[in-house]
């Protein structure tokens, strides 16, 4: 046990406990929180310490570490992740998807074959539903192939909301009115629910993308969207995630990252590809080398 003097009395977390918590989160989830995020982390930690009625932060950390079910870790992770997003965010990559990327993916496929897309870090679902709407509206070959759309996140509450598919005005701000009318139904003032057909076209699952055991079931993926997620990871977490995507992708498959992210700083396994609308990262086709 640490000496009592290390336990702050003003609700703050001691430097040692803060480091322990950050190490534990990094180890279990890949999420990286630096000293600059202390206030953000501390507030959410205090909330969970109080909710679990733990006598001290140290006791709460022990609960996190040793609870067999991992339920409390999941609740804390839910609080720590940022799920602020909206439909058609960074639309240029959706443009890229239907203006060239998918045509390249299916170049050697026969009609009826599968195309697999994965929204990794889908938060409350705006991204996978945006992908689905874009495909239906703008990819002329959408009916030629069996398109499977997977979406995952580490935040179980965000996934529940994604499955429910109810959104407010803020989420829909960038959607043209005719698309709202076509793909949503009003459920309350200022609140719309995405139509069942679209909701049922996305397979949502709880996945920690740096855990090989969880990611290994994703195989033969053609496009991974992982935008503005890896900025929350440290170098090792980003490197692990890049390796997981490489493993999940088919040869020639693509990764779309956020506008401020670059694969070149994470992994040498991908080749940057410049399309008219966006820069993507491609797993080399078989025989092409890395």
């Amino acid at each position: 046990m640490a000496p009592p003097s290390e336990e702050p009395t003003d609700g703050a977390v001691s430097p040692a406990d803060y480091r322990t918590l950050c190490d534990l989160l990094r180890e279990r989830t890949g999420l990286s929180f630096t000293e600059a995020k202390r206030y953000y982390v501390q507030r959410r930690l205090a909330e969970r310490v109080e909710a679990t009625r733990m006598p001290s932060v140290r006791d709460y950390l022990n609960l996190l570490r040793f609870q067999a079910s991992g339920a409390e870790m999941q609740l804390l992770v839910n609080l720590m992740t940022v799920n602020e997003t909206y439909f058609f965010r960074e639309k240029y990559q959706l443009d890229c998807l239907v203006n060239g990327m998918l045509d390249e993916v299916v170049r050697h496929r026969r009609p009826g074959e599968r195309v697999r897309l994965w929204s990794a870090g889908c938060a409350t679902g705006e991204e996978p539903y945006s992908i689905a709407i874009t495909l239906l509206e703008r990819w002329p070959r959408v009916d030629e192939f069996q398109i499977e759309l997977y979406a995952s996140d580490i935040d179980s509450m965000a996934l529940d909301r994604a499955r429910e598919g109810v959104y407010g005005e803020r989420s829909l701000q960038a959607l043209p009115a005719e698309l709202v009318e076509r793909y949503f139904r009003p459920v309350a003032p200022g609140s719309w629910r995405i139509i069942d057909e679209l909701r049922e076209s996305v397979d949502f699952s709880l996945v920690n993308i740096v855990d090989p055991a969880q990611v290994r079931r994703f195989t033969g993926i053609d496009v991974v969207f992982c935008r503005n997620l890896l900025i929350y990871f440290d170098d090792l977490g980003r490197r692990n995630a890049a390796a997981m995507f490489h493993e999940a992708l088919s040869p020639g498959g693509f990764v779309a990252l956020g506008h401020s992210e670059s694969m070149s700083r994470m992994s040498s396994l991908f080749v940057p590809r410049r399309f008219p609308d966006a820069i993507l990262y491609q797993k080399p086709a078989e025989g092409a080398g890395a």
């Binding site: 697999r116 398109i147 499977e148």
Partner: peptide, 17 residues
């Protein structure tokens, strides 16, 4: 065809155990 329910036909792999 078009969008199909992903995973509904058990098409995705299962993690080796």
């Amino acid at each position: 065809m078009g969008l199909v329910k992903a995973g509904s036909k058990g098409t995705l792999g299962t993690a080796p155990t």
